[in-house]
Design a protein around this nucleic acid. Structure first.
Length: 573
DNA sequence: GCCGTTTTCGGCCCGACTGTTTTCAGTCG
């Protein structure tokens, strides 16, 4: 199996860690980290690019040397330079840097003076008070290290965006209620609408002397106050989620919001532009020879560099700055562009609400149409529909359509794609429906080739319209099945099929990069909720967020079309 | 190690907080 971009990025990050501990040139270290970031977020696999002999050094932050190293990793699965340094610097030291408060310098001292090389060694040394006497350490640091090591769970978990909203909203209200506070907003990856967030970044503007930081540290859900100063503070909530608060004067709102929204690489790119113009950007404003020339709004800042306003979802240094300069930024799709939801379940299979409930709830949300897509017979655990039950549902939908004034229900089904690439119901049944969505619910472990061909074969069926949750991943729970998404997208293009952006918070499948790839290859998507209850219809916004991160415009999304146009899109024969 | 409408050499984002120091290094975002 080819090495994934994520795994290549991990190797470079590990190399960067070990080089840093070894005291290498910090800029060289950063170069490896930048390259790792580029590789991780690149929409095409390094493996394929190497196979097609493309020039990797054209990617940002990747030059001749790193390009050659990527090639070696792809072809041999190894990075010899990493293996060489591991003979001098134990690889586990890289894990120790995951402990908050431990960076390369301290890890180096711990290893050099006490031969500590694992988190377990670290715990024992802290318990037996051997750390406090090391140079640059003390009693307090030792206690902090012990506490962090004891609560260490391995991988730092990332919180689903939807869960983060539930935590953030009440906290926001609590902080707004503070005297002297003017504005409070959540910045960081939350504002960029990433599918998961590592921490919450809250920005407040307040008069000097406001006690907003104190109020923040006294929030009832705070488990530990990590730091707390005049203008910033970090806490851990009882759940373990880290929350950072930064306070700036209101006149710096735009600069601070921009700064704390990131991403880091977007900010660095912009700051480099500033440097070339002999200007300086920080969280308080843009400065030219110590004179503040912008900072009240984000728009002002972009304007200063000849750039159009860049939506937060695009700020990943993936070409948005160039696009803003050349006035070719996309006008991103928004929730109000969505005219209907094309994936939902009812009590006929595994949904919690009836057909009528779902239709009425959708109408209340202002939709013009919905598609009812209960499961097909193969999915027995969900009580999937056979031909007879499906036809009964179609009749029920016809009756309801006769009754409901303000919404049209499309007859549809979520069809299982069987292992050999056949669809779970015969064409004679499918031809009676307005559309189908097709998906994989079994045989996740097929080889990449077999899985890909399974889907392409299924798409050969002229009643195949939308490929639902195309990679099958469940965030933090289940990896995507191994599939060549590029071939699938190309296959959809040839055959007139569409891909779904599933808005369920733990699916968000297609993800942002894949959305972008689909757009580049000329394939349109449907953004749908996969709702199993009335309340889940509100997840639409998370799907839209993901599509926005993938640069999609309303014209890239089929369920922004009026009903008549939409119906035509599903006629393949 | 990467990069280039100042450059193929000499730069590389920048400020806050903590703890250990006694003026600052290390870490973080």
């Amino acid at each position: 199996m080819p090495v994934s971009n994520v795994n290549i990025a991990r190797l470079f990050n590990r190399l960067a860690d070990l080089l840093e501990i070894d005291g290498a040139n910090p800029f060289r270290v950063r170069a490896y980290r930048n390259a790792a970031q580029t590789i991780r977020s690149h929409s095409r696999s390094m493996g394929e690019m190497v196979a097609q002999e493309e020039d990797l050094s054209e990617l940002p932050g990747i030059g001749k040397e790193i390009a050659a190293k990527i090639k070696t990793i792809v072809e041999h699965g190894r990075l010899p330079q990493l293996e060489r340094i591991e003979t001098r610097v134990p690889a586990e030291l890289s894990d120790m840097m995951q402990i908050e408060g431990l960076g390369p310098k301290r890890v180096k001292v711990l290893y050099r003076d006490l031969k500590i090389r694992s988190i377990e060694d670290l715990r024992r040394a802290a318990q037996t008070h051997r750390i406090r006497d090391l140079p640059g350490f003390g009693e307090k640091t030792e206690k902090t290290i012990l506490r962090r090591v004891q609560t260490w769970t391995g991988q730092a978990p990332r919180t689903l965006l939807a869960e983060a909203e539930d935590i953030a909203e009440p906290m926001l209200r609590y902080l707004k209620d503070c005297k002297g506070v003017k504005r409070v907003i959540i910045a960081g990856s939350y504002r960029r609408r990433k599918e998961t967030i590592g921490d919450l970044d809250i920005l407040a503007t307040a008069k000097t002397g406001s006690d907003v930081v104190q109020r923040f540290t006294r929030y009832e859900d705070v488990g530990e106050v990590v730091s707390s100063g005049k203008t910033r503070s970090t806490v851990h909530l009882k759940s373990g989620l880290q929350v950072d608060l930064r306070v700036v004067p209101d006149a710096s709102y735009g600069a601070a919001l921009h700064y704390f929204t990131g991403s880091k690489s977007h900010n660095i790119a912009l700051r480099t532009m500033a440097q070339k113009r002999k200007m300086k950007i920080n969280e308080y404003g843009v400065y030219k020879s110590n004179k503040k020339i912008a900072g009240r709004t984000e728009t002002d800042i972009y304007k200063l560099f000849g750039l159009a306003y860049i939506d937060p979802e695009l700020r990943e240094n993936r070409g948005e700055i160039e696009a803003a300069r050349d006035k070719r930024l996309p006008k991103l799709v928004s929730v109000k562009d969505i005219r209907g939801d094309l994936h939902m379940h009812t009590t006929a299979t595994d949904g919690r609400n009836s057909l009528r409930d779902m239709a009425e709830a959708a109408a209340q949300r202002g939709y013009e149409y919905i598609a009812i897509t209960d499961h097909s017979r193969h999915l027995t655990v969900a009580n999937g529909l056979d031909a007879k039950r499906l036809m009964k549902q179609v009749e029920a939908i016809d009756r309801l359509n006769g009754e409901l004034r303000n919404i049209t229900i499309l007859t549809a089904i979520e069809l299982d794609i069987l292992e050999r690439g056949t669809l779970d119901l015969p064409d004679s049944v499918l031809k009676e429906l307005d559309l189908t969505i097709c998906s994989i619910h079994s045989s996740f472990r097929l080889s990449r080739k077999k899985q890909t061909e399974r889907v392409l074969r299924a798409m050969d069926n002229p009643y195949f319209n939308i490929f639902a949750h195309p990679t099958g991943r469940l965030i933090n729970k289940r990896e995507a099945y191994d599939i060549d998404l590029e071939r699938v997208v190309a296959g959809a293009k040839e055959r007139g099929c569409y891909l779904e952006v599933n808005a369920e918070p733990e699916r968000l499948d297609l993800n942002d990069d894949a959305c972008r790839m689909a757009k580049h290859m000329g394939v349109k998507v449907a953004i749908s909720t996969d709702a199993h209850s009335v309340s889940s219809l509100d997840h639409m916004r998370f799907g839209v967020d993901q599509a926005r991160r993938g640069w999609l415009e309303a014209s890239d999304v089929i369920n922004t079309r009026p009903l008549n146009t939409l119906r035509r899109l599903f006629k393949r024969i």
